[in-house]
């Protein structure tokens, strides 16, 4: 294959990577933005989504699309409920102290990881693609399902933006993000808001996992790498900035995809990490972060 088509192929792979990464990072950024806590367990909610997708699709016979659709609804719901329960049982009692919640979410990380290991075992689990169709792009064929992943991510990102910018719930979230104490003085129940945000953040990560699991397998240790990349994206984009998160996810996802195809995935991670250092030196609040964050 010539360089041009090869670059196009790498860019398309990068785009799929960027789409999934932007969803994972969006959940992380939402939680940090509103609650001001760093959720180290975020990658485990992603892993939980993937494992649950495999588990749910195993119950459904016939078309794999039905199992996939069920997983797309049920897995994020379960991940969201588990996250909300963790918030009520643990984080709320720590009064969302930034340092204490880091330790607590490390604890949640291990609890989820080991619970999945004990329940489903250590094997990697494949999930069938809901549809198998290859688009002929003249130089090479490309999975239509991967385009579906990109399209779904765009729809979800747009929906989150719409909720945040145009609804009363979004207004409540933005007010809580800006000043939680004053928000309470105007009738906003911030502990309920925090709980919902923690649940929604985990559910978005689980959606990303359900989307990607037909391309890569589900495994109890799969949460680590997306967490690292999501942190990189959120730091580069600016903590709590939706716009920044999407821009940085496209940047990191695309470069990761292209470098992985042309060179090696490890080199892609090294470059992404170096990029974080450079951004932090030049713009400590990230590319789109405000002074306060």
């Amino acid at each position: 294959m010539d360089l041009g088509p090869y670059l196009l192929f790498a860019s398309l792979e990068g785009l799929v990577h960027a789409a999934v990464l932007s969803l994972i990072a969006l959940g992380l950024s939402l939680v940090f933005g509103v609650m001001r806590i760093v959720n180290v367990a975020h990658g485990e909610f992603f892993m939980l989504g993937a494992i649950l997708a495999w588990w749910i699709s195993g119950f459904v016979f016939g078309s794999p699309a039905i199992g996939f659709l069920l997983a797309l609804i049920i897995a994020p719901l379960i991940a969201g409920v588990i996250a909300m329960s963790s918030d009520w049982l643990i984080l709320k009692h720590l009064k969302y102290d930034p340092e204490a919640t880091i330790i607590a979410t490390i604890g949640i990380l291990y609890i989820i990881q080991q619970a999945v290991l004990m329940t489903f075992g250590p094997d990697a689990r494949p999930v069938e693609q809901p549809f198998n169709y290859r688009l002929d792009l003249y130089w090479f064929g490309f999975s239509a399902y991967k385009f579906f992943v990109v399209f779904s991510a765009i729809i979800l990102l747009f929906s989150v933006w719409l909720v945040m910018a145009k609804t009363k719930f979004g207004l409540i979230l933005r007010a809580t993000q800006l000043d939680s104490e004053t928000a309470q003085a105007f009738g906003i129940p911030i502990s309920t808001v925090y709980s919902l945000v923690f649940g929604v953040g985990a559910a978005i990560a689980a959606v990303a996992a359900v989307l990607i699991v037909p391309i890569q397998q589900a495994h109890y240790l799969m949460g680590g790498e997306p967490l690292l990349l999501a942190f990189i994206v959120v730091i580069i984009g600016g903590l709590g900035s939706l716009r920044g998160t999407v821009a940085a996810a496209v940047l990191i996802g695309m470069s990761d995809g292209i470098i992985s195809v042309f060179f090696s995935p490890n080199l892609a991670k090294i470059i992404a990490t170096l990029f974080v250092v450079i951004v932090l030196l030049i713009k400590p609040n990230g590319l789109f972060g405000s002074e306060k964050t």
């Binding site: 207004l171 933005r174 007010a175 800006l178 004053t182 928000a183 009738g187 906003i188 405000s290």
Partner: peptide
């Protein structure tokens, strides 16, 4: 004042109207 500084005047008033 503790306004929600990144929200518009209208949005700040809407927050006041929540109750």
């Amino acid at each position: 004042r503790r306004l929600f500084s990144e929200l518009t005047v209208e949005e700040n008033l809407e927050i006041g109207l929540l109750t």
